[in-house]
Every structure is written in C-alpha cells, then in structure tokens.
Amino acid sequence: MLTLAGVGKRYRRRSVLAALDLALARGEIVGLLGPNGSGKTTTLRIAAGYAWPDSGEVRLAGEVFDPDQATLRARIGYLPERVPLYDPFTVGEYLDFVAAARGLHGPSRASAVARVIAAFELDAVRTRVIGRLSKGFRQRIGLAQALVGEPDVLLLDEPTNGLDPFQILEARRMIRAAARGRGVIFSTHILQEVAALCTRVVYLHEGRLVELAVDGRDAGLEVRLARASLDAVRARVHALDPAIELRSAEALGEDRHRLVFDLGRAGVARAELVRLLAEFADLESVGEATPDIEQALNAALAAQARGAAA
C-alpha cells in the first residue's frame, strides 16, 4: 500500500535517513520506535508528502508520490507531532474545512464529518471553539481530521504525547478502531504503546530501520533448568559459542532457572543448542519463548552495538 524504498534525507550536513526501506500493508499497524532525533518524524513527514527525500522514492498504491501529486495526498491521513488546529474555529468548522480540502463536497462531506465526529465522540463539542478545549479533546480532533475522507494510510506522530493515562487508553482504543481496513504507521517513545497496538514494530537507528521480533513470529528458545547453577550454564554456553547471547537478563532476579535465547542471533540450530545445554545441566523444559517488546528492542540494540564494535 505504502512503500518507502531506499529513502535518504539530509538536513544540511547531517544525514537523518540513510537508504530506509519500509513497506506498509493494509490492516497493519506498524510501530516506529527510536530515540529523539533518530528520524521518526522525518520518516512520517516524507511518507505524508510534507518533506521530500533526497534519494529513494515513496510509492502509494504503486504510484510514485512526488511534489506534484497533490491528489495522492487525499489517500493519506496525517497527524503531526504538534496537532495542527485552527484555534478560533469550532470543531465542526475545522473538520468541515479538512473534508472540503480533501475534495469532499455536498452530502459526502457532511457524512464524512459526521462519521468522524461520531467515531471520536466529539458531538458534545462540535460547536465549541477549538482554542478553549482540553488537550485530550484537541488530540481527538487531530485524530479525527486525519481520518476525514477515509484515507487508505494513517500516519500518526506520537499520537498519545502529553495525554494522561486515561486519555492514553482512550486514544489507543480510537487508534485501534481507526486502523480497521487501512495501514497505520505511528511513532512513539512508549514501549507499552507499541506492545498494546502494533502488529509490527520497527526501530529506527542511525537512519536505518531494524525490524523487531514481536508477537512470537520470531520466537526464541526458553529453557528451564531442573538443577545446576544458572550462572555456570550461562558461562559454559558463552564459552562454547560466544555468539550465543542471553536475551533476558532480568529473568535472573525472580526466576533463576530460566534462560531465554535468541535463536536467530545465536547462530546455532535449536537442536544443537539443546544438546549443548543438556551436557551441563538438567533441563526441566524446553519451549518457545515469545520475546516482549523490551526484550526485542534490547536484542536489536545489542546486535547493533556488536555490529558497530566489529
């Protein structure tokens, strides 16, 4: 649906994105993680047509998205990091303006506005001036404008930024509902946000994307030990193969008999690893490990650190 291929972007001398590849399919909610300044906003701006890449291309439904393709922008809903609202306007006037600018006229415009007002529960404030509304409502209006006209792709830049915990839960519910039938990319710093919403997670590091394994699609290996010292086994495993890495260091605290391996990174086959472990300890059970988002992120960061050191 939306494809960024080899996208590069520089601001003055600083390279923000370097040959970034990202494909978004219908029904996907892709979480875009990364530290401040990693290029998340730039990625979304390029995907939304607000900024243009220095290299590479953006395609929407197979068509190249270039500066003169204004019509393609109607198929993208975009919520920037700072919600773009006209404070003197009422909620209804603002959403009506966005609908008209998206090329909707007459009854279809009225119904498009009515749909988002209902979806985001804005009916009570429809005639209120935006400038006098709370942050939660302002964020809702921002989400609503992104969805006016039923765009195929929804791009959300830190959509829950600055909201209180209750508003965050509400915003998540709305994003989940909004994602039906379209592709969504959203950026955030909050790992729980990603775990709660996303079908896929990518981590932006030094201008490149690293796909994170979540949802058990790239399951690791979880080994529970009946006896023997965990530390000894760990040391032994390291001694056997330095490439094998413990993914779940925090498990050592509460549960000293649990080891989690990232098979993809360990460089050994599952059977081979189990055989090696069995030589040094009594294995109680061996099963699939589903890494959570934090473990996946830690693994990706560790791999990058190794790559940089090499």
Binding site: Y78, P80, P84
Partner: peptide, 14 residues
C-alpha cells in the same frame, strides 16, 4: 508558528 502549515501542505492542495 501554529503548526498548521504542516496540515495545509499534506492536504491535497497545491
């Protein structure tokens, strides 16, 4: 300054 330029430039208008 009000961040609405980002909205305008991502709407399907030239």
């Amino acid at each position: 300054s009000g961040d609405t330029l980002e909205l305008l430039l991502t709407l399907p208008v030239g």
